[in-house]
Design a protein around this nucleic acid. Structure first.
Lengths: 127, 127
DNA sequence: CTAGTTGCAAAGAGTTTGCATGGCG
DNA sequence: CGCCATGCAAACTCTTTGCAACTAG
């Protein structure tokens, strides 16, 4: 992506306007109807490489992508509620401690993009 | 899977003999050469549903599966290498500390099934 | 014997690629 | 003008499915 093209801007506009949504290629095609499929695949791949998009694994086969707000996303991990889907971030200090714990225990380095699974307070009460 | 067939036993034998490895369908076909592909897909799907196998998503497109040792899988979290798909477990003490950290920070309770994302030592060197 | 399982081949879904055309800088 | 991006269609990979033959219980 060396040129700043219309297609790229359209796509970034869509993602950044809906930072909480994760779109599959099919989803996007339905919204940006005149964009070709192959261009779209190529664009999400480069935007992902460039760090604009986060890859999201869903239960279906298709890969989804979500806007990655760079300020909101650097040093800390996230936790997603299995009940309602809401995502919170942990603060950097906590994330750092977890990274060290994991490294000492397993020798793995943890990615700061890690998404933990959990239950928020209100979903916990529902059970 | 209502019958206890030869194919099923062959497959479980392979997985349980190598509990640290995650196999794709292609990998298994190379080892169990006379098993048909479609049977294999059907088998891993049911063994996964029945809880014998864990699904592991790797960087390649193909889904991998790994033996899930039921005793080894209760109170602790796991970490999966983004590079090679290998899964390690954290010990219970570490997992407990992480659960508390997360709870204090965010108010969420973390599931013990949580799968952290990371990079193992050798995949880290490859980069 | 009967219902569940297997193998084969073909279909399906998601993604990638080759090539000619068009557009950014 | 040169190089990169785009669109189209075809190719590719991984997975699922229909159906007939087989096998466990």
């Amino acid at each position: 992506m060396k040129y700043n093209t219309v297609r790229k801007q359209e796509l970034l506009a869509l993602f950044s306007a809906n930072p909480d949504k994760a779109y599959s290629v099919e989803d996007i095609l339905a919204l940006l109807v005149d964009m070709s499929q192959s261009t779209l695949y190529r664009l999400v791949a480069s935007l992902h490489e460039e760090g604009y998009l986060r890859k999201v694994e869903t239960e279906n086969r298709a890969t989804c992508y979500q806007y990655r707000d760079k300020e909101n996303c650097s040093g800390h991990m996230h936790i997603r509620c299995r009940g309602c889907g809401q995502v919170e971030h942990l603060d950097e200090k906590t994330s750092e401690i977890i990274r060290n714990l994991v490294s000492n225990d397993s020798g793995f380095s943890t990615l700061s993009s890690t998404m933990l699974d959990g239950l928020c307070a209100s979903c916990r009460e529902d059970k």
